[in-house]
Simulated assay, not measured.
Amino acid sequence: MSTLKFAANLSLLFTERPLLERFSAARAAGFDAVEIQFPYSLERECIQRELKAHQLELVLINIPAGDWEAGERGLACLPGREAEFSVAVNQAIEWAQQLGVPRLNCLAGVRPQGISVEQSKHTLAHNLTLAADRCHSAGIQLMIEAINTQDIPGFCLHQSAQVIDLIDQLQLPSTALQYDVYHMQIMEGNLISTLQQNADKIGHIQIADVPGRHEPGTGEINYTNLFRALEQIGYSGHISLEYNPKATTEAGLGWLATWMTQDRTR
């Protein structure tokens, strides 16, 4: 059996149910780990109750990313919003500590019109340094994610190398690349080569197929080869299912059966 560990992204999976009911659905489908993009509309105690009741680990949440409905996709690269970003980091750390979340993802954001690349880069460096230092002190790993510019035009980090270079240049403690297979297939391809070359720099992986952002097997990515490569490099983190199911979530989970280990199918 495979040794890979899978997590269900409850923001995109089991959406036929209210968010609090998705925990039990994830356990019933065989998961023992979940992630939520932005859990902040819920009561922490309610999440805690669901995690305990269904023996689930919450492995990742995002740092608040600004006004999502207005199109904001992160605060870290926005000059003049440093105080707001600082508050968001503190909020995320507080939630992570109470819920036992080991890692936080930081969305860098879209550079606003009228702001130079240099201004945005300077702000991003300042904010990532702040976030990494605070996460390190709290015993939490900080994730930084590159996102494709087809889905989110202007997103300031859109290549794996950009994130890895930032982490190295800024010497960010307890910080790693969150590698999203869907985004990186669109932006750069060479998935297996990138994973092999940067195995020690990747802290979390998310998956969806291309095109469509649906489950593996619906698009062009050879997930059998990709998962085998992850086993060969000894990847020990979680692989999160962050996709939009073509039908119901359960109907689209057939591909996962051969990769779930024995103890994760109870």
Rank of each mutant, 00 (worst) to 15 (best):
residue 10 L to T: 09
residue 16 E to G: 11
residue 19 L to G: 10
residue 21 E to G: 02
residue 27 R to M: 09
residue 30 G to D: 13
residue 31 F to E: 07
residue 32 D to P: 03
residue 34 V to C: 08
residue 36 I to F: 13
residue 41 S to F: 12
residue 42 L to T: 11
residue 43 E to H: 13
residue 44 R to M: 13
residue 46 C to D: 11
residue 55 Q to D: 11
residue 56 L to G: 02
residue 57 E to H: 14
residue 59 V to G: 00
residue 59 V to D: 05
residue 70 A to D: 06
residue 73 R to C: 07
residue 76 A to C: 01
residue 79 P to N: 05
residue 79 P to A: 02
residue 81 R to S: 12
residue 85 F to C: 05
residue 87 V to Y: 10
residue 87 V to T: 14
residue 88 A to R: 09
residue 91 Q to D: 05
residue 97 Q to C: 10
residue 101 V to S: 04
residue 102 P to D: 09
residue 102 P to I: 06
residue 102 P to G: 02
residue 103 R to T: 08
residue 108 A to R: 15
residue 110 V to Q: 02
residue 112 P to R: 12
residue 126 H to K: 15
residue 127 N to W: 09
residue 136 H to F: 11
residue 138 A to C: 01
residue 148 N to L: 02
residue 150 Q to C: 04
residue 154 G to V: 09
residue 156 C to V: 15
residue 160 S to W: 04
residue 162 Q to L: 02
residue 165 D to A: 11
residue 166 L to T: 01
residue 167 I to R: 00
residue 173 P to D: 04
residue 176 A to C: 13
residue 180 D to N: 07
residue 188 E to Q: 15
residue 189 G to C: 05
residue 195 L to F: 05
residue 202 I to P: 00
residue 215 E to A: 03
residue 218 T to P: 06
residue 220 E to V: 06
residue 221 I to V: 07
residue 222 N to R: 10
residue 224 T to C: 06
residue 226 L to C: 00
residue 232 Q to K: 14
residue 235 Y to M: 01
residue 235 Y to I: 00
residue 237 G to P: 05
residue 242 E to V: 03
residue 247 A to S: 10
residue 258 T to Q: 15
residue 260 M to G: 13
residue 260 M to N: 04
residue 260 M to Q: 15
residue 262 Q to N: 07
residue 263 D to L: 15
